[in-house]
Design a protein around this nucleic acid. Structure first.
Length: 282
DNA sequence: ATTGGTTCCTGCTGGC
DNA sequence: TGCCAGCAGGAACCAA
């Protein structure tokens, strides 16, 4: 499930392959993603040079030499796979929806089993007003994210803190996995009403979010089912999950104090699994 | 304004 | 063994 660390890992892999390269040919095999790909996307991309790739939340923004920006979202099963010039290329798969060829002979395949991914084209000066980007909250790893900023965004919200953190308008880039992990490291119950996370609790949560995201990026993201790096390698942060997917196991801190007996519980909040330590998180 | 529920999609899993 | 219902999940959308 690509969240911020997986998107960042993908961005880094794509940047190595694409920066300064010319998109010689773009083939759209299946345009029906989350919404239809722009009908003229292949035409507008052909012959353009990639000048950079940025990331905003879970979106990659591929900058082109003519002032256009290609927005890419991986949805929940999207992958970008780079095949270097001259490298072996396995046959196209069922869910390889978009194929990019560079003039130096590299190929990039966008594969997305569940088709929740998205792509769009815009002008560089539209980035801040684009419907998918304009309402996003602060970047959790950016300077503008802090305890007071998060606290202000949680003020008056009666929804559980777990649900609030999944809302991309509160803070951008978190998904189910890293929200569970961050709440654990901040000792906060996922059920706690969002508006009660103020002051030192908000500071603690911001620190936990930043720490877990930084560590996950350093580990190349998490590979549960679908996620792979652009070169096909697996991320390994899944081995460092404290609570996610570990129902009825002891959490790391309970294990360390030897008071551990299946302290990790699972509950369902707004239709999604939440994992937490029943002893530490309040 | 905020919040909860529904929907899109496919592949895997569990129950009978 | 085989079938199908249920589930997973990011985020837009709708209704209350």
């Amino acid at each position: 499930m690509p969240e911020l660390p997986e998107v960042e890992t993908t961005r880094q892999g794509l940047l190595v392959a694409l920066e300064g390269q010319v998109l010689q040919d773009v083939e759209v095999r299946v345009p029906a993603l989350r919404f239809p790909l722009p009908a003229d996307m292949a035409t507008r991309l052909a012959g353009r040079t990639v000048t950079g790739i940025d990331r905003r939340a879970k979106y990659m923004l591929v900058a082109l030499d003519d002032g256009q920006v290609l927005l890419i979202h991986l949805g929940m099963s999207g992958r970008m796979r780079v095949f270097a010039a001259g490298a072996d290329r396995p046959p196209l798969e069922k869910h390889d929806h978009v194929i990019f060829q560079t003039d130096s002979g590299a190929e990039i395949r966008f594969n997305d089993t569940r088709r929740f991914g998205a792509m769009d084209l815009m002008a560089a000066d539209e980035i801040n007003s684009h419907p998918l980007l304009r309402d996003l909250g602060p970047e959790p790893l950016g300077n503008e994210f802090s305890g007071p900023v998060l606290a202000a965004r949680l003020e008056g919200r009666r929804t559980p803190i777990k649900a609030a953190l999944l809302d991309q308008k509160v803070v951008a880039g978190l998904g189910n996995i890293y929200v569970c992990e961050a709440l654990y490291h901040a000792n906060l119950s996922p059920r706690r009403s969002a508006h009660t996370v103020q002051g030192v609790r908000a500071e603690r949560l911001v620190q936990a979010i930043r720490d877990v995201l930084r560590q996950a990026i350093a580990a190349g993201g998490s590979s549960l089912r679908d996620f792979r790096h652009a070169d096909g390698e697996l991320g390994y942060f899944q081995h460092h999950f404290a609570v996610y997917g570990r129902e009825s196991e002891p959490c790391p801190r309970c294990a360390a104090t030897q008071k551990a007996t299946g302290c990790i519980r699972r509950l369902v909040q707004s239709g999604r699994s939440t994992f937490y330590c029943s002893r530490w998180q309040r």
